[in-house]
């Protein structure tokens, strides 16, 4: 061992805070058969609509009961098991519930879901909490490198690099749209729309050899369209990133010096 006696051996893991972008299912009734027929109507023809997306079951939209202890459906672990099995059949992965009565919370926990007390504003830092321990497989999918596009993207064309970075070797014209869950690299003029971190990754960036974008967005924060931010780099090699500080979330641009 090369470590000196004073230092601890390196940990085999790190615990870091992270923000996940999840889908929320806002239940308006606890009647599973109604839910089932509603799903069949909406997604019956596109059973692959979801792609093993993590989902939060939001109970705060259920009709209020006189007291939180009265039975209102979804009160037993068994009912939650049934709900989880049903959602999984649509390739959804229930991770947690939000809101709900004390009985519902207890039943959901017993069924292996974690509990998220109420609505969480976007910018609040996430806590390191139970889901990590309780839920075996959270959302992040394996990164399979970047999606590489060699041909120009013209007006009306759209490319989405799901769960990964996007590299475009040819121009992205006005009226075209490039979207990635990771970074976007464009080794040509970017004249169209670019959205990086589409599922909420606020560390994602947009790089372009010639920055002339119509519109850019990172993790849901968009350029407001007045392009004042871009004037200094317009037509030049530049990168766009998202900063969050006391002034809120905003996009910043930097020239890239070759």
């Amino acid at each position: 061992m090369t470590g000196t006696s004073g230092t601890r051996p390196p940990l085999s893991f790190d615990i870091k805070s992270t923000l996940l972008s999840l889908v929320a299912l806002q239940l308006k009734s606890t009647d599973l058969s109604r839910l089932s027929s509603g799903f069949a109507l909406r997604f019956g023809e596109t059973p692959d609509f979801f792609d093993n997306d993590g989902i939060v079951i939001d109970l705060s939209f259920l009709p209020r009961q006189p007291t939180s202890e009265s039975l209102s459906g979804l009160d037993t672990p068994l009912e939650f098991f049934a709900l989880i099995t049903f959602l999984r059949s649509y390739r959804l992965r229930p991770l947690a519930i939000r809101g709900g009565s004390a009985r519902q919370v207890a039943a959901a926990m017993a069924a292996g879901l974690s509990h998220e007390p109420g609505a969480m504003p976007r910018a609040t830092p996430p806590r390191v909490e139970k889901p990590v321990r309780r839920v075996p497989a959270p959302v992040p999918r394996p990164q399979v490198g970047a999606l590489v596009i060699e041909k120009p993207l013209r007006c009306g064309q759209q490319v989405y690099a799901r769960g990964r970075d996007l590299i475009v070797m040819a121009m992205v014209n006005a009226g075209a749209e490039v979207i990635a869950d990771g970074h976007i690299h464009i080794y040509a003029p970017l004249r169209g729309r670019a959205i990086a971190g589409a599922q909420g990754n606020s560390d994602a960036r947009i790089f372009a050899m010639v920055m002339a974008a119509e519109n850019v967005g990172i993790a849901g924060v968009y350029d407001t369209g007045n392009h004042s931010v871009f004037e200094s780099v317009y037509g030049k090699a530049a990168q766009i990133s998202l900063v969050s500080d006391r002034g809120g979330d905003r996009l910043i641009v930097d020239k890239i010096h070759a």
Partner: peptide, 12 residues
């Protein structure tokens, strides 16, 4: 020019 760009995309 933009409409032409769209058409070129469709040709491909």
């Amino acid at each position: 020019v933009r409409d032409a760009d769209r058409i070129i995309g469709m040709l491909n």
